[in-house]
Amino acid sequence: MKMTEKPTLYHWEPNANSGKPMLALEEKCVTYDSVYIDMLSFDQHKPEYLAINPMGTIPAMVHEGRLMNESTAIMEYVDARFDGPKLRPRDPAKRWKMRWWMKYCDQYYGPSCSMIGWEMFVGPSVRQRDPDELKARIDAIPLAERRIAWTKAIYGKFSAEELAESRRRVMQGSALLEKNLEKNEWVAGDEFSLADINAFNLVYILPHMAETMNLPSVGVERTPMTMRWLKRVYRRPTIRSTWARSRGGLHIDIDDEINRDLG
C-alpha cells in the first residue's frame, strides 16, 4: 500500500487515550508528525486547535486531509491503512474478542480508572489557577459532556459514592482481565493486537496506584498473569520509543518494570 503523506497526530502524554494511536503507529513502523497538546494548559480548547478539531478532543489524527478522532477507531484505521505488522487477528471470532475488550476498556474499565486519576491528579494540578481563567477555559469546551467532565474534575465534584463505585469497577475490571490472561497470552488470544495496546495504556499505571491511591487492583499477589502480561508488553521496543515523546508526565522506569521481581 503506497503511503502518500505522513499522518499528523495531536496528542497529550503517551498514555490513556493519547497513548493508543501513538503506540499503534509505532507498532506499524509508521513515521508521523507528532504535535503535543498540553491538556493541563487546555491547549485542546484553544482556537488554533479547534480550527483543526472542532470537537476539542485529544487525540486526533489528520491524514490525507481528513480529520479523525475516537482513539480506538483511529487505531483500527492505522492498522487498515498502513503496511507493517498486522495488529488485528484475521480470525473473525478473535477480532470480535479484540473489539469486545477494547469496548470494555473504553467504556467501563478505563473511565472508572480515569475518574480516580482525574480526582487525584488532574483536578488538583489545575485547581489553583485563577478562577476566572478556569471558568473561561471550561466555557470554551465545545462538547457538553466534556464541560461536565472538566467541571467535576477541576472543582472536585465527584461524590464519595461515585468514587467508591469507580474503585469497585477498577477492581472488577482487573479481576476480569486477569481471568482472561489466565487463558490467553494476549488479550484477544494468542497474538498481540490492538486490544493489548488499548488495555496497556490504562493498566500499566494500576500497580503504581496500589499504594499511592490505596487501590490494590493489579499486583503480583492479586493478578500475577496481568503482571506477566505487562512485562511482555514493556519488553516491546515500541514502548520505549513511544514514551520517549513524554514531557515528563509518566514517572515510570521501563527497565525497572522489565526487571520487576514477580516471584
Partner: peptide
C-alpha cells in the same frame, strides 16, 4: 480505511 473509520466512529456514538 477511512470509510471503516467512519463506521466505527459512528457506531461508538450509537452504542454509547
Amino acid at each position: 480505511a477511512y470509510g471503516q473509520w467512519k463506521v466505527q466512529a459512528l457506531n461508538r456514538f450509537l452504542g454509547e
